[in-house]
Simulated scan of single mutants.
Amino acid sequence: MIEQNSSSIIGSKSFTAVAINCAAKAGEWIATKLGNYAQLEQKSSSQDLVTEVDKGSERLIRKLIATHFPTHAFLGEEGVTAGAAAAIEALDAVKDQEYVWIVDPIDGTTNFVHGFPFFCVSIALAHHGEVIVGVVYDPIKDELFVAEKGKGAYVHGKLMQVSKEADLNNSLIATGFPADTTHALPRNMKGLQHLIPQVRNVRVAGSAALHLAYVAAGRLSGFWEIGLNSWDMAAGVLLVKESGGTVTDVSGEPYHLGVRNVLASNGNIHVALQQQLQSADK
């Protein structure tokens, strides 16, 4: 799918191949558990859920990665206490590591719990803080989105390109409803209310990683959300960038792993979209 070079191989093990293998194995197992989970717990709120399947998926991925790259750091959602402060602290703890795997074992757990078929496995690898591999796997549609820095992004083995819309009024945008109902959700809702009359339509499907993959594939013109964590978007951000899109925070500042308020687009509408969100904030 993607040509290898010496910068992406350690001991003849391709970073990208390992990420794909982990996502595929975890996704296959997750699909067998759809409608068949045993334990449901709330984390920060009733909108922030976790099952034993999330935890099992993360254990599986972590074990597989450690088999190939035992010295690499690992940052997974289920290994971090709920809440923004804990997520920021967890990222800070690994930021100086040479290689960090950033994993969301099920992005879209609420969808998984309800049997709504829009969730995925998201796996990224950062090198000195820069994402160099991103894999998003949708086990229900059997869609594998793969990006390697500088080598493009692919789905079904075909090169992806972002959409061509040049105006907001012709654009299909996506967002999410943050689990943080005190700060992030009200801010996101202000943006949503402001944007709806400006765009063709808005979709809210419940997985930031898949929304970003859809921007990369040209199925969405743009996506934004307030209060995300690094594991929600690291892989998806690389997909968008390698498909020719643009990713910043909502204020227009460059993306980095610490960004929590993300804005991704096909590039053509980015400035206009960012300005409308800033206007909503005011």
Rank of each mutant, 00 (worst) to 15 (best):
T16M: 14
A17Y: 13
A19Q: 12
I20Q: 04
N21P: 00
C22E: 01
A23F: 03
A24T: 13
K25Y: 06
K25P: 00
E28R: 14
W29M: 12
I30L: 05
I30K: 03
T32R: 12
K33H: 15
L34T: 09
Y37I: 02
A38G: 05
Q39W: 00
Q39G: 11
L40A: 02
K43Q: 11
K43Y: 06
S45L: 10
S46L: 09
S46I: 08
S46G: 05
Q47W: 05
D48K: 06
V50P: 01
T51E: 07
T51N: 04
V53K: 07
V53Q: 02
D54Q: 04
D54L: 04
K55M: 11
K55Q: 13
G56S: 13
G56Y: 03
S57W: 00
S57M: 00
E58A: 09
L60F: 11
L60H: 08
L60S: 13
I61D: 02
K63C: 03
I65H: 07
T67H: 10
H68G: 00
H68S: 14
H68T: 07
P70V: 09
T71L: 14
T71Y: 13
T71Q: 14
A73W: 04
A73Y: 06
F74Q: 07
F74M: 05
L75V: 05
L75M: 08
G76P: 01
E77R: 03
G79D: 12
G79C: 06
G79S: 13
G83K: 03
G83D: 01
A84L: 12
A85K: 04
A86N: 08
A86D: 01
A87K: 05
I88S: 11
L91A: 01
D92E: 10
D92T: 14
Q97I: 03
Q97S: 10
Y99H: 10
V100R: 02
W101A: 13
W101R: 14
I102A: 10
V103A: 09
V103N: 04
V103P: 01
P105M: 06
P105L: 10
D107P: 02
G108Y: 01
T109V: 07
T109D: 10
T110W: 14
T110C: 05
F112M: 12
G115A: 11
F116A: 10
F116E: 08
P117E: 07
F118D: 02
F118N: 03
F118V: 08
V121C: 11
H127C: 11
G129L: 06
E130H: 12
V131S: 12
I132N: 02
I132A: 06
G134E: 00
V136R: 01
V136G: 04
D138I: 05
P139A: 09
I140P: 00
I140F: 02
I140A: 09
I140D: 01
D142W: 01
D142C: 12
E143K: 10
E143N: 13
E143I: 09
F145Q: 04
V146A: 13
A147N: 10
K149S: 09
G150L: 02
K151H: 14
K151G: 01
G152I: 08
A153T: 07
Y154C: 09
V155L: 14
V155P: 00
H156F: 13
H156E: 13
